[in-house]
Design a protein around this nucleic acid. Structure first.
Lengths: 247, 247
DNA sequence: TAATTCCTTTTGTAGGACATAATGTAAGGT
DNA sequence: ACCTTACATTATGTCCTACAAAAGGAATTA
Protein backbone atom coordinates (compact mmCIF):
# COMPACT_ATOMS: atom_id res chain seq x y z
CA UNK A 1 0.00 0.00 0.00
CA UNK A 2 1.30 3.40 -0.88
CA UNK A 3 1.00 6.33 1.47
CA UNK A 4 -0.31 8.70 -1.15
CA UNK A 5 -3.92 9.77 -1.23
CA UNK A 6 -3.64 10.91 -4.80
CA UNK A 7 -3.10 7.45 -6.20
CA UNK A 8 -0.46 6.77 -8.79
CA UNK A 9 -1.06 6.39 -12.48
CA UNK A 10 -3.59 9.15 -12.91
CA UNK A 11 -1.17 11.70 -14.27
CA UNK A 12 -2.24 13.44 -17.43
CA UNK A 13 0.25 14.74 -19.96
CA UNK A 14 0.59 18.48 -19.78
CA UNK A 15 -0.32 19.22 -23.34
CA UNK A 16 -3.81 18.02 -22.58
CA UNK A 17 -4.12 20.04 -19.48
CA UNK A 18 -5.76 23.20 -20.62
CA UNK A 19 -6.85 22.45 -24.10
CA UNK A 20 -10.37 23.30 -23.13
CA UNK A 21 -9.17 26.78 -22.24
CA UNK A 22 -7.10 27.45 -25.30
CA UNK A 23 -9.73 26.57 -27.83
CA UNK A 24 -13.28 27.23 -26.98
CA UNK A 25 -16.06 25.01 -28.19
CA UNK A 26 -17.28 25.94 -31.61
CA UNK A 27 -20.85 26.19 -30.47
CA UNK A 28 -22.16 25.93 -26.97
CA UNK A 29 -24.47 22.99 -26.87
CA UNK A 30 -27.62 24.52 -25.49
CA UNK A 31 -29.32 27.82 -26.04
CA UNK A 32 -28.83 28.69 -22.40
CA UNK A 33 -25.08 28.26 -22.77
CA UNK A 34 -25.02 30.51 -25.79
CA UNK A 35 -27.16 33.15 -24.17
CA UNK A 36 -24.97 33.12 -21.10
CA UNK A 37 -21.95 33.68 -23.33
CA UNK A 38 -23.65 36.42 -25.30
CA UNK A 39 -24.74 38.21 -22.17
CA UNK A 40 -21.25 38.18 -20.75
CA UNK A 41 -19.86 39.45 -24.04
CA UNK A 42 -22.51 42.11 -24.06
CA UNK A 43 -21.62 43.29 -20.59
CA UNK A 44 -17.95 43.50 -21.49
CA UNK A 45 -18.42 45.16 -24.84
CA UNK A 46 -20.70 47.82 -23.50
CA UNK A 47 -18.25 48.22 -20.64
CA UNK A 48 -20.95 48.25 -18.05
CA UNK A 49 -19.85 49.22 -14.60
CA UNK A 50 -21.38 48.06 -11.33
CA UNK A 51 -24.64 49.85 -10.73
CA UNK A 52 -25.70 50.05 -14.35
CA UNK A 53 -29.14 48.75 -15.20
CA UNK A 54 -29.64 45.92 -17.65
CA UNK A 55 -32.46 45.59 -20.16
CA UNK A 56 -35.48 43.69 -18.96
CA UNK A 57 -35.77 40.00 -19.44
CA UNK A 58 -38.36 40.20 -22.16
CA UNK A 59 -36.32 42.68 -24.16
CA UNK A 60 -33.27 40.46 -23.94
CA UNK A 61 -35.34 37.49 -24.99
CA UNK A 62 -36.68 39.35 -27.99
CA UNK A 63 -33.27 40.68 -28.96
CA UNK A 64 -31.71 37.23 -28.75
CA UNK A 65 -34.61 35.50 -30.37
CA UNK A 66 -35.15 33.03 -27.59
CA UNK A 67 -37.77 32.52 -24.97
CA UNK A 68 -37.74 34.38 -21.73
CA UNK A 69 -37.21 31.08 -20.04
CA UNK A 70 -33.82 30.54 -21.61
CA UNK A 71 -32.78 34.06 -20.76
CA UNK A 72 -33.78 33.48 -17.17
CA UNK A 73 -31.70 30.33 -16.93
CA UNK A 74 -28.69 32.23 -18.18
CA UNK A 75 -29.37 35.15 -15.88
CA UNK A 76 -29.74 32.74 -13.00
CA UNK A 77 -26.16 31.70 -13.59
CA UNK A 78 -24.87 35.23 -13.61
CA UNK A 79 -26.87 35.89 -10.50
CA UNK A 80 -25.18 32.97 -8.78
CA UNK A 81 -21.79 34.35 -9.72
CA UNK A 82 -22.81 37.60 -8.14
CA UNK A 83 -22.47 39.48 -11.40
CA UNK A 84 -26.00 40.80 -11.35
CA UNK A 85 -28.71 41.47 -8.83
CA UNK A 86 -32.34 41.91 -9.60
CA UNK A 87 -35.25 43.34 -7.74
CA UNK A 88 -38.81 43.41 -8.80
CA UNK A 89 -39.87 46.36 -10.82
CA UNK A 90 -36.47 47.97 -10.56
CA UNK A 91 -34.93 45.52 -12.99
CA UNK A 92 -31.46 44.08 -12.94
CA UNK A 93 -28.24 45.86 -12.11
CA UNK A 94 -24.66 44.83 -12.60
CA UNK A 95 -22.76 44.20 -9.39
CA UNK A 96 -19.23 43.41 -8.41
CA UNK A 97 -19.01 39.64 -8.49
CA UNK A 98 -17.79 37.72 -5.52
CA UNK A 99 -14.91 35.99 -7.24
CA UNK A 100 -14.48 33.29 -4.64
CA UNK A 101 -18.16 32.60 -4.05
CA UNK A 102 -18.40 30.25 -6.97
CA UNK A 103 -15.25 28.42 -6.00
CA UNK A 104 -16.72 27.82 -2.59
CA UNK A 105 -19.61 25.86 -4.02
CA UNK A 106 -17.39 23.52 -5.89
CA UNK A 107 -14.62 22.80 -3.43
CA UNK A 108 -16.00 19.59 -2.03
CA UNK A 109 -13.25 17.06 -1.34
CA UNK A 110 -15.65 14.20 -1.86
CA UNK A 111 -16.43 15.24 -5.39
CA UNK A 112 -13.02 16.39 -6.58
CA UNK A 113 -10.75 14.00 -8.39
CA UNK A 114 -7.43 12.78 -7.08
CA UNK A 115 -5.48 14.98 -9.44
CA UNK A 116 -7.27 18.08 -8.33
CA UNK A 117 -6.94 17.16 -4.67
CA UNK A 118 -3.21 16.80 -5.07
CA UNK A 119 -3.03 20.08 -6.95
CA UNK A 120 -4.91 21.93 -4.26
CA UNK A 121 -2.83 20.39 -1.52
CA UNK A 122 0.27 21.72 -3.23
CA UNK A 123 -1.36 25.04 -3.90
CA UNK A 124 -1.97 25.50 -0.19
CA UNK A 125 1.70 24.84 0.52
CA UNK A 126 2.59 27.46 -2.04
CA UNK A 127 0.29 29.93 -0.37
CA UNK A 128 1.89 29.26 3.00
CA UNK A 129 5.35 29.81 1.62
CA UNK A 130 4.22 33.09 0.12
CA UNK A 131 3.03 34.47 3.44
CA UNK A 132 6.44 35.81 4.38
CA UNK A 133 6.67 38.68 1.91
CA UNK A 134 3.27 40.15 2.63
CA UNK A 135 3.50 39.65 6.37
CA UNK A 136 6.78 41.51 6.63
CA UNK A 137 5.24 44.28 4.61
CA UNK A 138 2.41 44.85 7.03
CA UNK A 139 2.83 43.20 10.41
CA UNK A 140 2.23 45.31 13.48
CA UNK A 141 3.21 44.82 17.13
CA UNK A 142 -0.46 44.13 17.89
CA UNK A 143 -0.41 41.26 15.44
CA UNK A 144 2.59 39.73 17.13
CA UNK A 145 0.89 40.04 20.49
CA UNK A 146 -2.20 38.33 19.14
CA UNK A 147 -0.09 35.50 17.78
CA UNK A 148 1.60 35.04 21.13
CA UNK A 149 -1.78 34.81 22.79
CA UNK A 150 -2.80 32.10 20.39
CA UNK A 151 0.41 30.19 20.90
CA UNK A 152 0.04 30.48 24.67
CA UNK A 153 -3.33 28.84 24.44
CA UNK A 154 -1.84 25.94 22.60
CA UNK A 155 -3.24 22.89 24.27
CA UNK A 156 -1.07 19.90 24.72
CA UNK A 157 -3.88 17.58 23.78
CA UNK A 158 -3.04 16.00 20.51
CA UNK A 159 -6.61 14.92 19.89
CA UNK A 160 -7.78 16.00 16.53
CA UNK A 161 -10.49 18.59 17.09
CA UNK A 162 -8.35 20.69 19.43
CA UNK A 163 -5.29 20.41 17.33
CA UNK A 164 -7.03 21.37 14.12
CA UNK A 165 -8.78 24.26 15.80
CA UNK A 166 -5.49 25.63 16.97
CA UNK A 167 -3.84 25.18 13.60
CA UNK A 168 -6.62 27.17 12.00
CA UNK A 169 -6.42 29.91 14.60
CA UNK A 170 -2.68 30.34 14.20
CA UNK A 171 -2.40 30.14 10.45
CA UNK A 172 -5.61 32.09 10.03
CA UNK A 173 -4.11 34.93 12.01
CA UNK A 174 -1.04 34.84 9.80
CA UNK A 175 -3.18 35.25 6.73
CA UNK A 176 -5.12 38.03 8.36
CA UNK A 177 -1.86 39.87 8.94
CA UNK A 178 -1.30 40.09 5.20
CA UNK A 179 -4.29 42.43 4.98
CA UNK A 180 -5.33 40.60 1.85
CA UNK A 181 -8.93 39.47 2.10
CA UNK A 182 -8.94 37.45 -1.07
CA UNK A 183 -5.78 35.66 -0.05
CA UNK A 184 -7.26 34.88 3.35
CA UNK A 185 -10.58 33.67 2.07
CA UNK A 186 -8.92 31.60 -0.58
CA UNK A 187 -6.77 29.84 1.95
CA UNK A 188 -9.77 29.30 4.19
CA UNK A 189 -11.64 27.62 1.38
CA UNK A 190 -8.77 25.30 0.71
CA UNK A 191 -8.70 24.13 4.31
CA UNK A 192 -11.30 21.36 4.01
CA UNK A 193 -9.39 19.85 1.13
CA UNK A 194 -6.16 20.08 3.05
CA UNK A 195 -7.71 18.43 6.08
CA UNK A 196 -9.25 15.76 3.95
CA UNK A 197 -5.93 14.77 2.50
CA UNK A 198 -4.27 14.80 5.90
CA UNK A 199 -7.02 12.67 7.39
CA UNK A 200 -6.48 10.13 4.71
CA UNK A 201 -2.80 10.28 5.47
CA UNK A 202 -3.27 9.65 9.17
CA UNK A 203 -5.65 6.84 8.50
CA UNK A 204 -3.05 5.10 6.38
CA UNK A 205 0.22 5.97 8.10
CA UNK A 206 -0.91 6.19 11.70
CA UNK A 207 0.14 9.50 13.19
CA UNK A 208 0.68 12.70 11.27
CA UNK A 209 4.20 13.97 11.49
CA UNK A 210 4.90 17.46 12.66
CA UNK A 211 7.69 19.78 11.62
CA UNK A 212 10.65 20.63 13.82
CA UNK A 213 9.85 24.32 13.81
CA UNK A 214 6.85 25.05 16.00
CA UNK A 215 4.38 27.87 16.04
CA UNK A 216 6.28 29.33 18.93
CA UNK A 217 9.47 29.32 16.89
CA UNK A 218 7.72 31.07 14.02
CA UNK A 219 6.58 33.87 16.27
CA UNK A 220 10.11 34.30 17.59
CA UNK A 221 11.37 34.62 14.05
CA UNK A 222 8.73 37.23 13.36
CA UNK A 223 10.06 39.29 16.21
CA UNK A 224 13.76 39.10 15.42
CA UNK A 225 14.32 37.72 11.95
CA UNK A 226 13.62 38.92 8.44
CA UNK A 227 11.31 37.65 5.72
CA UNK A 228 13.78 35.08 4.51
CA UNK A 229 14.26 33.70 7.98
CA UNK A 230 10.54 33.41 8.35
CA UNK A 231 10.19 31.59 5.09
CA UNK A 232 12.92 29.16 6.02
CA UNK A 233 11.10 28.58 9.30
CA UNK A 234 7.84 27.98 7.51
CA UNK A 235 9.50 25.56 5.15
CA UNK A 236 10.80 23.59 8.13
CA UNK A 237 7.41 23.81 9.78
CA UNK A 238 5.80 22.32 6.69
CA UNK A 239 8.62 19.89 5.95
CA UNK A 240 6.55 16.73 6.55
CA UNK A 241 4.06 17.89 3.95
CA UNK A 242 6.73 18.66 1.40
CA UNK A 243 8.34 15.30 2.05
CA UNK A 244 5.02 13.70 1.29
CA UNK A 245 5.13 15.14 -2.19
CA UNK A 246 8.40 13.47 -2.98
CA UNK A 247 7.00 10.01 -2.39
CA UNK B 1 -0.81 62.03 -7.81
CA UNK B 2 -0.06 58.67 -6.31
CA UNK B 3 1.42 55.84 -8.29
CA UNK B 4 -1.01 53.28 -6.96
CA UNK B 5 -3.77 51.86 -9.11
CA UNK B 6 -5.69 50.66 -6.10
CA UNK B 7 -6.46 54.09 -4.81
CA UNK B 8 -6.00 55.02 -1.21
CA UNK B 9 -8.73 55.13 1.34
CA UNK B 10 -10.64 52.10 0.21
CA UNK B 11 -9.27 49.78 2.85
CA UNK B 12 -11.90 47.89 4.78
CA UNK B 13 -11.35 46.80 8.37
CA UNK B 14 -10.62 43.12 8.59
CA UNK B 15 -13.45 42.20 10.88
CA UNK B 16 -15.82 43.00 8.09
CA UNK B 17 -13.92 41.04 5.57
CA UNK B 18 -15.61 37.68 5.59
CA UNK B 19 -18.72 38.24 7.56
CA UNK B 20 -20.78 37.02 4.69
CA UNK B 21 -18.90 33.75 4.85
CA UNK B 22 -19.12 33.22 8.55
CA UNK B 23 -22.83 33.68 8.84
CA UNK B 24 -24.98 32.61 6.00
CA UNK B 25 -28.27 34.25 5.17
CA UNK B 26 -31.16 32.85 7.15
CA UNK B 27 -33.19 32.21 4.07
CA UNK B 28 -32.12 32.50 0.50
CA UNK B 29 -34.27 35.08 -1.13
CA UNK B 30 -35.66 33.25 -4.09
CA UNK B 31 -36.93 29.73 -4.59
CA UNK B 32 -34.20 29.10 -7.09
CA UNK B 33 -31.56 29.95 -4.51
CA UNK B 34 -33.11 27.59 -2.00
CA UNK B 35 -33.46 24.80 -4.51
CA UNK B 36 -29.86 25.23 -5.56
CA UNK B 37 -28.84 24.95 -1.92
CA UNK B 38 -31.02 21.93 -1.31
CA UNK B 39 -29.73 20.18 -4.36
CA UNK B 40 -26.14 20.68 -3.33
CA UNK B 41 -26.94 19.45 0.17
CA UNK B 42 -28.70 16.49 -1.33
CA UNK B 43 -25.73 15.58 -3.46
CA UNK B 44 -23.40 15.77 -0.49
CA UNK B 45 -25.64 13.94 1.92
CA UNK B 46 -26.26 11.08 -0.42
CA UNK B 47 -22.56 11.11 -1.14
CA UNK B 48 -23.06 10.88 -4.83
CA UNK B 49 -19.95 10.19 -6.81
CA UNK B 50 -19.25 11.29 -10.36
CA UNK B 51 -21.17 9.16 -12.77
CA UNK B 52 -24.22 8.64 -10.59
CA UNK B 53 -27.56 9.47 -12.10
CA UNK B 54 -29.83 12.10 -10.63
CA UNK B 55 -33.60 11.98 -10.39
CA UNK B 56 -35.44 13.54 -13.28
CA UNK B 57 -36.37 17.17 -13.24
CA UNK B 58 -40.05 16.55 -12.72
CA UNK B 59 -39.40 14.25 -9.79
CA UNK B 60 -37.18 16.83 -8.16
CA UNK B 61 -39.79 19.48 -8.76
CA UNK B 62 -42.48 17.35 -7.18
CA UNK B 63 -40.29 16.42 -4.23
CA UNK B 64 -39.36 20.02 -3.58
CA UNK B 65 -42.81 21.33 -4.18
CA UNK B 66 -41.80 23.82 -6.82
CA UNK B 67 -42.27 24.14 -10.52
CA UNK B 68 -40.02 22.41 -12.95
CA UNK B 69 -38.97 25.83 -14.08
CA UNK B 70 -37.35 26.70 -10.77
CA UNK B 71 -35.59 23.36 -10.64
CA UNK B 72 -34.22 23.97 -14.08
CA UNK B 73 -32.84 27.36 -13.13
CA UNK B 74 -31.04 25.80 -10.19
CA UNK B 75 -29.80 22.90 -12.29
CA UNK B 76 -28.60 25.37 -14.87
CA UNK B 77 -26.30 26.81 -12.25
CA UNK B 78 -24.89 23.47 -11.27
CA UNK B 79 -24.44 22.70 -14.92
CA UNK B 80 -22.42 25.87 -15.37
CA UNK B 81 -20.20 24.88 -12.47
CA UNK B 82 -19.61 21.59 -14.19
CA UNK B 83 -21.16 19.63 -11.35
CA UNK B 84 -23.71 17.90 -13.53
CA UNK B 85 -24.16 17.02 -17.14
CA UNK B 86 -27.39 16.10 -18.77
CA UNK B 87 -28.31 14.40 -21.98
CA UNK B 88 -31.71 13.84 -23.37
CA UNK B 89 -33.46 10.72 -22.30
CA UNK B 90 -30.47 9.50 -20.33
CA UNK B 91 -31.04 12.02 -17.57
CA UNK B 92 -28.52 13.90 -15.52
CA UNK B 93 -25.30 12.57 -14.10
CA UNK B 94 -22.95 14.01 -11.55
CA UNK B 95 -19.57 15.03 -12.92
CA UNK B 96 -16.32 16.29 -11.53
CA UNK B 97 -16.66 20.04 -11.48
CA UNK B 98 -14.10 22.24 -13.12
CA UNK B 99 -13.14 24.23 -10.08
CA UNK B 100 -11.51 27.06 -11.99
CA UNK B 101 -14.09 27.32 -14.72
CA UNK B 102 -16.36 29.50 -12.66
CA UNK B 103 -13.52 31.74 -11.57
CA UNK B 104 -12.63 32.29 -15.19
CA UNK B 105 -16.01 33.82 -15.94
CA UNK B 106 -15.71 36.34 -13.19
CA UNK B 107 -12.12 37.51 -13.46
CA UNK B 108 -12.71 40.59 -15.54
CA UNK B 109 -10.46 43.46 -14.49
CA UNK B 110 -13.00 45.97 -15.66
CA UNK B 111 -15.66 44.70 -13.32
CA UNK B 112 -13.59 43.93 -10.25
CA UNK B 113 -13.20 46.51 -7.54
CA UNK B 114 -9.96 48.20 -6.57
CA UNK B 115 -9.62 46.14 -3.43
CA UNK B 116 -9.96 42.89 -5.27
CA UNK B 117 -7.58 44.00 -7.99
CA UNK B 118 -4.96 44.78 -5.42
CA UNK B 119 -5.57 41.46 -3.69
CA UNK B 120 -5.17 39.53 -6.88
CA UNK B 121 -2.04 41.41 -7.83
CA UNK B 122 -0.51 40.39 -4.54
CA UNK B 123 -1.79 36.87 -4.88
CA UNK B 124 0.04 36.50 -8.14
CA UNK B 125 3.27 37.62 -6.50
CA UNK B 126 2.70 35.01 -3.83
CA UNK B 127 2.22 32.36 -6.46
CA UNK B 128 5.46 33.35 -8.16
CA UNK B 129 7.38 33.15 -4.93
CA UNK B 130 5.96 29.70 -4.31
CA UNK B 131 7.24 28.34 -7.59
CA UNK B 132 10.64 27.44 -6.19
CA UNK B 133 9.64 24.52 -4.01
CA UNK B 134 7.61 22.69 -6.60
CA UNK B 135 10.02 23.36 -9.41
CA UNK B 136 12.95 21.92 -7.55
CA UNK B 137 10.84 18.90 -6.79
CA UNK B 138 10.18 18.09 -10.41
CA UNK B 139 12.40 19.92 -12.87
CA UNK B 140 14.06 17.90 -15.60
CA UNK B 141 17.00 18.65 -17.90
CA UNK B 142 14.51 18.93 -20.76
CA UNK B 143 12.70 21.68 -18.91
CA UNK B 144 15.92 23.63 -18.48
CA UNK B 145 16.67 23.26 -22.16
CA UNK B 146 13.23 24.53 -23.05
CA UNK B 147 13.72 27.53 -20.80
CA UNK B 148 17.03 28.32 -22.43
CA UNK B 149 15.40 28.23 -25.82
CA UNK B 150 12.81 30.69 -24.65
CA UNK B 151 15.40 33.00 -23.16
CA UNK B 152 17.46 32.83 -26.36
CA UNK B 153 14.47 34.06 -28.32
CA UNK B 154 14.20 37.04 -26.05
CA UNK B 155 13.76 39.97 -28.33
CA UNK B 156 15.40 43.20 -27.47
CA UNK B 157 12.38 45.15 -28.53
CA UNK B 158 10.83 46.69 -25.54
CA UNK B 159 7.54 47.24 -27.29
CA UNK B 160 4.69 45.92 -25.30
CA UNK B 161 3.21 43.07 -27.30
CA UNK B 162 6.56 41.32 -27.76
CA UNK B 163 7.61 41.88 -24.22
CA UNK B 164 4.39 40.58 -22.72
CA UNK B 165 4.41 37.57 -24.99
CA UNK B 166 7.85 36.67 -23.84
CA UNK B 167 7.01 37.15 -20.20
CA UNK B 168 4.10 34.78 -20.55
CA UNK B 169 6.16 32.21 -22.37
CA UNK B 170 8.88 32.21 -19.76
CA UNK B 171 6.79 32.27 -16.63
CA UNK B 172 4.25 29.94 -18.18
CA UNK B 173 6.96 27.39 -18.73
CA UNK B 174 8.01 27.74 -15.11
CA UNK B 175 4.50 26.95 -13.97
CA UNK B 176 4.32 24.03 -16.33
CA UNK B 177 7.44 22.62 -14.72
CA UNK B 178 5.61 22.32 -11.42
CA UNK B 179 3.42 19.63 -12.97
CA UNK B 180 0.48 21.20 -11.20
CA UNK B 181 -2.30 21.89 -13.66
CA UNK B 182 -4.51 23.76 -11.25
CA UNK B 183 -1.62 25.97 -10.19
CA UNK B 184 -0.77 26.70 -13.80
CA UNK B 185 -4.32 27.44 -14.87
CA UNK B 186 -4.88 29.60 -11.86
CA UNK B 187 -1.86 31.72 -12.59
CA UNK B 188 -2.89 31.97 -16.22
CA UNK B 189 -6.26 33.31 -15.22
CA UNK B 190 -4.70 35.92 -13.01
CA UNK B 191 -2.58 37.24 -15.87
CA UNK B 192 -5.11 39.69 -17.34
CA UNK B 193 -5.57 41.29 -13.96
CA UNK B 194 -1.85 41.52 -13.49
CA UNK B 195 -1.40 43.10 -16.89
CA UNK B 196 -4.24 45.48 -16.27
CA UNK B 197 -2.63 46.81 -13.13
CA UNK B 198 0.76 47.11 -14.80
CA UNK B 199 -0.72 48.97 -17.74
CA UNK B 200 -2.23 51.44 -15.38
CA UNK B 201 1.14 51.76 -13.73
CA UNK B 202 2.97 52.48 -16.95
CA UNK B 203 0.37 54.97 -17.99
CA UNK B 204 0.90 56.89 -14.80
CA UNK B 205 4.60 56.48 -14.13
CA UNK B 206 5.98 56.29 -17.62
CA UNK B 207 8.07 53.19 -18.08
CA UNK B 208 7.68 49.97 -16.11
CA UNK B 209 10.72 49.14 -14.09
CA UNK B 210 12.38 45.80 -14.42
CA UNK B 211 14.19 43.78 -11.79
CA UNK B 212 17.95 43.39 -11.68
CA UNK B 213 17.74 39.62 -12.01
CA UNK B 214 16.82 38.63 -15.54
CA UNK B 215 15.24 35.54 -16.98
CA UNK B 216 18.67 34.44 -18.04
CA UNK B 217 19.91 34.75 -14.49
CA UNK B 218 17.00 32.68 -13.22
CA UNK B 219 17.81 29.87 -15.59
CA UNK B 220 21.42 29.91 -14.47
CA UNK B 221 20.27 29.60 -10.88
CA UNK B 222 18.08 26.68 -11.84
CA UNK B 223 21.13 24.90 -13.19
CA UNK B 224 23.51 25.47 -10.32
CA UNK B 225 21.68 26.78 -7.28
CA UNK B 226 19.12 25.36 -4.89
CA UNK B 227 15.49 26.24 -4.21
CA UNK B 228 16.39 29.03 -1.84
CA UNK B 229 18.73 30.60 -4.34
CA UNK B 230 16.01 30.48 -6.92
CA UNK B 231 13.51 32.10 -4.63
CA UNK B 232 15.94 34.86 -3.80
CA UNK B 233 16.46 35.36 -7.50
CA UNK B 234 12.75 35.50 -8.12
CA UNK B 235 12.31 38.01 -5.35
CA UNK B 236 14.91 40.23 -6.97
CA UNK B 237 13.29 39.69 -10.35
CA UNK B 238 9.97 40.84 -8.95
CA UNK B 239 11.42 43.55 -6.76
CA UNK B 240 9.82 46.46 -8.62
CA UNK B 241 6.41 44.91 -8.04
CA UNK B 242 7.02 44.36 -4.37
CA UNK B 243 8.29 47.92 -4.03
CA UNK B 244 5.05 49.09 -5.52
CA UNK B 245 3.14 47.53 -2.65
CA UNK B 246 5.02 49.55 -0.11
CA UNK B 247 3.89 52.83 -1.56
C1' DT C 1 -46.94 69.27 2.77
C1' DA C 2 -47.54 64.58 4.13
C1' DA C 3 -49.88 60.34 4.09
C1' DT C 4 -52.74 57.12 1.67
C1' DT C 5 -54.52 54.66 -2.18
C1' DC C 6 -54.38 52.91 -6.62
C1' DC C 7 -52.03 51.83 -10.88
C1' DT C 8 -48.20 50.16 -13.48
C1' DT C 9 -44.18 47.65 -14.33
C1' DT C 10 -40.84 43.96 -13.84
C1' DT C 11 -39.26 40.00 -11.74
C1' DG C 12 -40.60 35.38 -9.73
C1' DT C 13 -43.30 31.14 -10.09
C1' DA C 14 -46.49 27.91 -12.10
C1' DG C 15 -48.13 24.76 -15.52
C1' DG C 16 -48.92 23.06 -20.10
C1' DA C 17 -47.35 22.02 -24.68
C1' DC C 18 -44.31 20.37 -28.06
C1' DA C 19 -39.59 19.57 -30.29
C1' DT C 20 -35.53 16.82 -30.03
C1' DA C 21 -32.59 13.28 -29.21
C1' DA C 22 -31.37 8.99 -27.35
C1' DT C 23 -32.81 4.56 -25.83
C1' DG C 24 -35.26 0.41 -25.95
C1' DT C 25 -38.20 -2.80 -28.55
C1' DA C 26 -40.52 -5.26 -31.82
C1' DA C 27 -41.15 -6.43 -36.57
C1' DG C 28 -39.20 -8.00 -40.73
C1' DG C 29 -35.84 -9.67 -43.91
C1' DT C 30 -31.74 -12.62 -44.92
C1' DA D 1 -30.52 -17.24 -35.30
C1' DC D 2 -28.82 -12.52 -36.51
C1' DC D 3 -28.83 -8.11 -38.32
C1' DT D 4 -31.48 -4.18 -39.77
C1' DT D 5 -35.19 -1.13 -39.74
C1' DA D 6 -38.96 1.19 -37.93
C1' DC D 7 -41.60 2.59 -34.18
C1' DA D 8 -42.69 3.73 -29.43
C1' DT D 9 -40.93 5.64 -25.21
C1' DT D 10 -38.82 8.84 -22.28
C1' DA D 11 -36.20 12.85 -20.39
C1' DT D 12 -34.34 17.06 -21.47
C1' DG D 13 -34.65 21.57 -24.15
C1' DT D 14 -37.54 25.31 -25.57
C1' DC D 15 -41.67 28.01 -25.94
C1' DC D 16 -45.90 30.08 -24.37
C1' DT D 17 -49.35 32.04 -21.28
C1' DA D 18 -50.86 33.39 -16.97
C1' DC D 19 -50.62 35.21 -12.56
C1' DA D 20 -48.51 36.51 -7.90
C1' DA D 21 -45.53 39.69 -5.53
C1' DA D 22 -42.93 43.60 -4.84
C1' DA D 23 -41.61 48.18 -5.74
C1' DG D 24 -41.91 52.54 -7.75
C1' DG D 25 -44.85 56.39 -9.34
C1' DA D 26 -48.94 59.10 -9.68
C1' DA D 27 -53.10 60.74 -8.12
C1' DT D 28 -56.00 61.75 -4.30
C1' DT D 29 -57.06 63.35 0.23
C1' DA D 30 -56.39 65.23 4.99
Amino acid sequence: MHSNPFEAGTFRPLYMSDLKNDIQPLEASTMTDMVELRLREYLKRKSFVPGDALPKEQELADALGVSRNVVREALSRLRMLGMIESRKKRGMVLTQPDILGSLERVLDPLILGKNTLRDIFELRLVLEMGLADLIYLRKTPEDIAALETIVAQEVNKHQKPFRVEHEIAFHGKLYQMTGNDTYMRFQKMLLPVFEYVLDYEIQVNGQAEVGKVTHHDLVEILKTGDAEDFRRGMKAHLKPHFDRLKA
